[in-house]
Computed example of a mutant assay.
Amino acid sequence: MNTPSSASAASLPPLVVSDRLAKKALRHFKERFIEMLLFGAASVSVLTTVGIIWVLVSESYHFFETVPLWSFLTDTMWTPLFADPHYGILPLLAGTLTTSLVALIVAIPLGTTIAIYLSEFARPAVREIVKPFLELLGGIPTIVYGYFALTVVIPMLQLLIPGLSGFNMLGAGIVMGIAIIPYVSSLAEDAMRAVPMNMREGSYAMGGTKLQTALRVVMPAALSGILSAYILGISRAVGETMIVAVAAGMQPNFTLNPLESAQTISAYIVQVALGDLPHGSIGYQSIFAAGLSLMLMTLSLNLVGHVLRRRYREAY
């Protein structure tokens, strides 16, 4: 027995989908093609990273077949091109860490101060002038910074420190810190400006000054972004090549004294890559072992930064 509702449903005309909304094979193919194209573009960075890691690991494996890993990590001499070769990474590691530390001592306080000023104190007209100059400072080739350190900064330091060598890690580190100030200040300022305005207004309502609000409210709220700026600056300093190659000297000395000359990992890679070493030789393979060490340092810094960002993002 048919109910009235079933009879009325049977009498309704069939549902018709317009041609514009109907599924067409051509449209489906276009969507799939675009999706594959975007996936391929996103995979470029992943495949490039995998390729770089594969080259470093494979070439370093042949290097460590000849040079013991323990000797590579503990030997205090790095003379792979001498008649009596030594392959201790410690001198290059000491030069890299010392120049990076000097650069961070310069870049982090100045970059943070600039970020606080641009975010909390500068008028819009001033910010529109200062921000492009910072970006321009970040676009100067590093080789120019290197010769600036060699011809301007180091002679000035020699006036203050008699007997200072013409190539030293102090001058290279100072100029390297100036070079990475735009990275630190720009990212930190963006993180501070992303803090909601009602947090600032709440601080002002409680009687806080602009400086107190910036230091006690805005900076803690933007701490994850500020830490990201610091980690980027550290990674940039560790991987810097031309400034230290020109101004710090090319002698792999095992020292932490910034007044002496030294060689960094990246500067050694440049030195050997420009030479005439035969492919597959132990000297040629040493640049891949040094590059692998540099990559592991940068990866460790990025992992530490990721952990800190997650921790402080959850806290605030």
Rank of each mutant, 00 (worst) to 15 (best):
P220G: 03
G88H: 08
S293V: 14
P13T: 04
Y230A: 13
R193V: 12
N198K: 12
A107N: 03
L215Y: 10
A122H: 05
D276I: 13
G40C: 02
P252L: 06
I89H: 04
E260N: 15
F72G: 04
I34N: 13
V130Y: 05
L21F: 07
R310H: 15
T298K: 09
L299N: 07
V17T: 11
A122Y: 04
M206S: 12
N253F: 13
M197C: 11
V102M: 02
S224D: 02
A191V: 00
M250K: 12
P220W: 02
K210G: 08
V44E: 06
I231D: 01
L97E: 10
S45H: 00
V218N: 00
F288V: 03
T151Q: 09
S58A: 08
T142P: 13
L274C: 09
D84A: 15
T241N: 08
M192R: 02
L92F: 07
E201R: 13
P91M: 05
S6K: 15
A42M: 10
T264F: 14
E240W: 11
T99I: 15
D190S: 09
L157S: 14
A289T: 04
L104F: 00
V270G: 06
W78C: 05
L12K: 15
A191G: 00
G111W: 07
F72S: 05
A315F: 05
A115S: 14
Y87I: 02
D276F: 10
G291N: 01
S11L: 12
Y312I: 07
P85F: 09
E59L: 06
Y268F: 14
L150I: 07
G51H: 06
F133H: 14
A214I: 01
R32A: 14
L134D: 09
R311G: 13
A103D: 02
G138N: 02
P220I: 02
V17I: 11
V17Y: 01
A7S: 13
Y204E: 03
M169V: 05
L21V: 04
A41F: 12
H86E: 10
L47M: 13
